[in-house]
Each structure stands twice: as C-alpha cells, then as structure tokens.
C-alpha cells in the first residue's frame, strides 16, 4: 500500500483551476520527486494535500486513512510534514524555539533536539540566534530539522535548493540522502533536475495541472517526449 495516495485531486487558485484531476502515489520509504515547469501546479498540489488551499476536491489518503477535508493542523498530526517554498522560518523565534514548537511529546525512538543538532551541527551553534538572522542555507536546514521533529511519516519539501549556493545544495542533498537511507519517505518538488533525479527513486511529472508521466527515475530519460515536452530538457 502506498504511504500517500492522491486521487482525482483538483485545486483552484482564485478562479483558475490549477490542479486538474491529479492522481499519483508516494510509496513507503524512498524519495518521490514531483517535477514540472513553473506553473505546472506542483506547489498548489502540495498545498491542496496540506489543506492550505480554500477550494479543493478529490481524495488524499495517508497510509489508507483519508486526510482530505481535514484542517491543516490535523493533516500534519496525521503524519505529514510540509516545508514550503518560502521555507516558513518563524523570524521572531530563536532557532531552538523554531524547533521546539514542532515537538509534540514524541516517544524516545522519534526525532529529538539532540538528533537534529547531530544532523545539522550548524543549527546547534546558532540555537539562540533569531530565526530572521539565518542565511538561506541555515534556514533550509532549520525547516527540514523542524519538519523531522514532528516525527512525520512523510516529509514534503517544496524547492529546497531554491536560491542556495552550490556548496549548500550539496550539503542539503547529502542530508536528504542520509534521511533516505534511514527510511524516511519524502515527496520532493524541485526545479533542479540533477538534484532531484540523484535523490529520487520515482518521478511524477506534472504539466499544465495534470500528471503527464509517472515511473521509476531511470526510465524517465527513455522518454524524450516527456523530457522535452514537459520538462523542457
């Protein structure tokens, strides 16, 4: 059974029908990349899954349980951690507070402050700094760490490499690869094709609000129509 199953998802942004009957699945474990050009509807798809768009329809299931129709905080508590494109660092909270607000009294085996500080030593160094003072790379580390602390079953990342320097992108990539080997399930939206395909086992390609291709990453390059037509490569 898929961890996340999206079926016939529709979402509207103001009056435009941005997501039109999108269906795809994210298996348990591994990284699934959601690719497509700007305006393909990727971000709106993620927001619709999280209940962050006003008007949506269709079915979203997490491990078989329906989560469509739930308010955003209930989707999060059901086990989905969402890191938006804008990252969503709380600027008036310190790094430590940004992390603490996400913790929901999990058991000993879950993510702890020590464990995320181990994964991102930079955050431990800056733990008392204000969220608004972090560099782009530190912000991205913080929001990934914060998402992990919710002990979610599925991590959703929207454009984690956007605006970051190549060295920082490599660092984030290494961290996501580590998380993948630890068995975390991730849904990754990314414009950086090389970054996404290096991490992802499966790829879902969206174009003009619909799913245009879905399959294993290595088979994507066999399909020049998709590569050229929907990814512009």
């Amino acid at each position: 059974m898929s961890l996340l199953a999206v079926e016939g998802l529709n979402a509207w942004y103001d009056r435009s029908h941005v997501v039109q009957g999108v269906s795809f699945a994210v298996p348990e474990g591994g990284v699934t990349a959601l690719l497509g050009r700007n305006g393909a509807g990727k971000t709106t798809t993620l927001k619709a899954i999280m209940g962050l768009v006003r008007r949506r329809s269709g079915s979203v299931r997490l491990a078989g349980q329906p989560v469509d129709g739930l308010p955003t905080h209930a989707v999060a508590r059901a086990g989905v951690a969402y890191v938006p494109e804008t990252r969503g660092v709380f600027p008036s909270l310190t790094v430590r507070e940004n992390l603490a607000v996400a913790m929901r009294g999990a058991g000993a085996e879950g993510w702890t402050l020590e464990r995320v500080y181990g994964l991102f030593p930079r955050l431990a160094e800056r733990s008392e700094s204000g969220g608004g003072t972090l560099s782009g790379g530190e912000q991205q580390m913080l929001v990934i760490a914060r998402a992990l602390l919710t002990n979610a079953r599925l991590l959703i990342l929207d454009e984690p490499t956007e605006g970051l320097a190549p060295t920082v992108i490599r660092e984030i990539g290494a961290c996501l690869a580590t998380l993948k080997t630890e068995g975390l399930s991730t849904l990754l939206v990314e414009q950086n094709f090389a970054f996404a395909t290096a991490l992802a086992d499966r790829v879902v390609v969206m174009g003009k609000g619909r799913v245009r291709w879905e399959g294993e990453t290595e088979r994507l390059s066999d399909d020049p129509a998709v590569m050229h037509g929907w990814l512009g490569l």
Binding site: L52, P71, T72, H73, G88, V101, T150
Partner: peptide
C-alpha cells in the same frame, strides 16, 4: 512560542500541527 509562531506565519504553524 507557539502563539508567536502563529503570529509570524499562521499557515506554517498549522502545517507543523499547531491548532491555530
């Protein structure tokens, strides 16, 4: 801290499971 987080960014706070 959760109240301040909600003031900073309501949607993000909700996405972390905080019942705004």
């Amino acid at each position: 801290a959760r109240v301040r987080a909600g003031v900073d960014d309501r949607d993000m706070a909700a996405a972390l499971g905080i019942d705004i």
